[in-house]
Write a protein that binds this DNA or RNA. Structure first.
Lengths: 245, 245
DNA sequence: TACTGTAGTTGAACGCGTTCAACTAAGCCG
DNA sequence: CGGCTTAGTTGAACGCGTTCAACTACAGTA
């Protein structure tokens, strides 16, 4: 009995309160994990192998990552950064809503291509509502907010004007749309996931037209009750987290 | 070396080629599993405990169920049977599309209520595209087909007439809608999942109105390109399985 | 320099899902 | 009855994710 007596929970995903040495070790572990994920997928990658590849002990890997699943958050962060970088030129160049939407969606798929085969296992854990990795979880709120803001920029920077209530909800709806596209992509086993690109090509046009139509008198009641529903569901939730689906 | 030399793959989920004794044992295992799932959830239930509770050995449980996940298919089957039974009176009584749709959706949620807390873990495995339990997998095709047929009856038995092309795709779209509702329900932690009921109440009305509007000249191009997309995506798939998402 | 607390690190151990070679029981054919 | 086949059954063993008590390295303090 010589060591410390209480142990704080491991640092986990966030890069805070780590010494230089710690940051380096953490990074080595994550790099090893992502490479193994790409090479042989999620299930086939063992924590023992990750630790060995990173040159640390098994227990040490768990010091930096609460669980095998938590390694995935490292992937999330990197994936979003890549996506953002790929979107910038598109959002600066294009002004049409359809083109902007399509470009952003295609960028997400293109930047994720290398991880397509292990993305299934990824969503497997993400689908569990109790998992902190669920895209709907409180813990994912920061990432979700960033993605939503990106979609907000897609609409705001376009030549389409959207009225107040809809403008507020639209980014969330588009985020749901993005989740749907990703879900499709995960299940897409066509060569180069060409079916997903086809889906994006068609649905981006569809969605852009729908947004334009939303103000039309014929569709007004439909639009209104949709917006009312979204508001109600949001108010109904007990926390500030808990998105509208 | 006295026993048999080759071993067929275990019977798995289907109830075929089992002796009376086998059927009984299988049923005892499944009953034990479902009870434990209800009591303490999926993860907290161990195969050893299931076997003990069923009064069989650990290995024997694996003789009837290829894996722990495969126990879930037993849940699927029972859940669908319950749903079907609950829907029959509704479909015989109601004629309005909105009411029929709402009734069928509510029945799904109501009959699943007891399993709400473990349904998350259920969908967790179901979200993996490689898993045979994925609702999109080839192995789930029979169940999916049955559910789709139920939704077909919802439309056909109603007082709304739908034209040919749309009539063919509509059941698949409604099945997707049902999947979305279930996904929402899984993440719904409001008391008695009342937010899900609110969602159903509003969206069933919305969807019914959309179906009526689909034939409207203003929306005709939108409807047409949606249908074209669905057809294309289906043709693009290489197998007869692989639904349109 | 010695002392102390903490970040970082270790590997044995636990419980789990899963596998498999071997066993038992029951039916069938001569 | 005896021999054969096959459905049904067993539990030890394997590999994995995860935990944890104990260790080491190092920075700060007196």
């Amino acid at each position: 009995m010589s060591g410390s007596r209480t142990r704080e929970p491991p640092p986990g995903a966030v890069n805070e309160a780590l010494t230089e040495r710690g940051r380096l070790t953490r990074s080595r572990i994550l790099d090893a994990a992502l490479e193994l994920f790409r090479e042989r997928g999620y299930e086939q990658t063992t924590m023992r192998r990750v630790a060995r590849e990173a040159g640390v002990s098994l227990g040490n890997a768990y010091y930096y990552f609460r669980s095998k699943e938590h390694l995935i958050q490292g992937y999330y962060a990197r994936s979003h950064d890549d996506h953002l970088a790929a979107c910038t030129p598109i959002l600066e160049r294009e002004t049409g809503l359809r083109t902007r939407l399509r470009g952003v969606l295609e960028a997400k798929i293109a930047t994720s291509a290398a991880y397509h085969q292990f993305a299934g296992a990824l969503f497997k854990t993400a689908a569990d509502p109790r998992s902190p990795l669920s895209p709907f979880s409180d813990e994912s709120e920061p990432t979700r907010r960033e993605a939503t803001r990106l979609l907000e920029r897609v609409v705001e920077g376009s030549d389409v004007r959207v009225s107040g209530d809809l403008a507020r909800e639209l980014p969330h709806l588009l985020w749901l749309y993005l989740m749907g596209v990703i879900l499709f992509w995960i299940h897409d086993d066509s060569p180069r996931t060409r079916r997903t690109y086809r889906l994006i090509e068609h649905t981006s046009s569809l969605v852009a037209r729908l947004i334009r139509l939303a103000g039309n008198p014929l569709l007004r009641p439909l639009t209104d009750s949709t917006l009312r529903l979204l508001r109600e569901l949001r108010e109904d939730g007990e926390g500030p987290g808990r998105q509208s689906l």
